[in-house]
């Protein structure tokens, strides 16, 4: 045993070496290939994951849009934002709906968060929407808390101003401004934005207020074009409120 063992040991040495070389070098060639394959697979899965995440986000947005569409009593059409104004002077977006879909100049464009703007130009398949932040855009509005009437005008950036607001009207930062429905294009009560600061230092009969639009114009991806809307009479409004109250009572029970 004592004699054989060292010989065995020596003869085992090349086997060990061969095994080692085989395991750590020749098999590694496959590992390298496998590693590359796995890396590629990870990249594919990451891309797939990103796509699914993007789809989930789009689903959430579209569901929100659909819920809003069902909630309001107007005929609206969903459209996708495909481009923005090529110049720095104006604030507009291009949407993928046009005359063929029944879009007409002047129609209101909204989103679940509030007013976006109105249709300025139309072509058979696309339209240009002038955003509320453009200084050529003016919308008739009322301050929700005090019912003070004013005109909302764009200030170019992501800001608007409240013009022709009587000095006698009491408004303060944080007040919500909604559409008055008087222009004929926008349904009444759609959120426009929140007052940021009030300027009543001048001497005229009007005061001015700066407004932050509720819609984040930069992040707009889908919008709703109001094709037609019926102004709801006060009796109908009362009925709707009563129905809602009954429903909530039933749900509580």
């Amino acid at each position: 045993m004592e004699i054989c063992s060292p010989i065995q040991k020596i003869s085992n040495f090349p086997i060990k070496i061969t095994k080692k070389i085989f395991n750590e070098y020749i098999l590694l060639l496959n590992v390298k290939k496998e590693n590359e394959l796995l890396k590629r697979r990870i990249l594919e899965l990451e891309r797939e994951n990103n796509q699914l995440r993007e789809m989930a986000l789009a689903y959430g947005r579209l569901k929100h849009l659909l819920d809003f569409k069902e909630r309001i009593s107007t005929s609206v059409m969903a459209a996708e934002v495909i481009a923005r104004d090529p110049t720095s002077w104006f604030r507009s977006i291009t949407i993928n709906r046009g005359e063929k879909d029944g879009i007409k100049k002047g129609m209101a464009v909204i989103s679940p968060k509030g007013v976006v703007g109105h249709v300025l130009k139309t072509s058979p398949n696309h339209s240009i929407v002038l955003l509320i932040t453009d200084y050529n855009c003016a919308i008739d509005a009322i301050v929700q808390r005090t019912r003070a009437k004013a005109i909302v005008e764009g200030l170019g950036e992501n800001r608007c101003q409240l013009k022709y607001l009587l000095r006698t009207e009491e408004v303060s930062p944080g007040d919500i401004v909604v559409t008055s429905g008087l222009g004929g294009n926008f349904p009444k009560g759609i959120m426009i934005g929140q007052i940021k600061k009030v300027d009543n230092q001048g001497h005229g009969i009007f005061q001015y207020a700066e407004l932050i639009p509720n819609v984040d114009i930069q992040k707009l991806e889908e919008v709703l074009v109001v094709k037609e809307f019926t102004s709801v009479s006060s009796e109908d409004k009362v009925k709707k409120i009563e129905e809602k109250a009954k429903k909530t009572k039933k749900n509580k029970r």
Binding site: D85, P86, T87, W89, F90, T94, K121, L130
Partner: peptide, 13 residues
């Protein structure tokens, strides 16, 4: 072309 795709009246650019 710029006029067509921007939010102004035709003719400016």
């Amino acid at each position: 072309l710029t006029d067509l795709f921007s939010g102004n009246s035709y003719g400016l650019f």
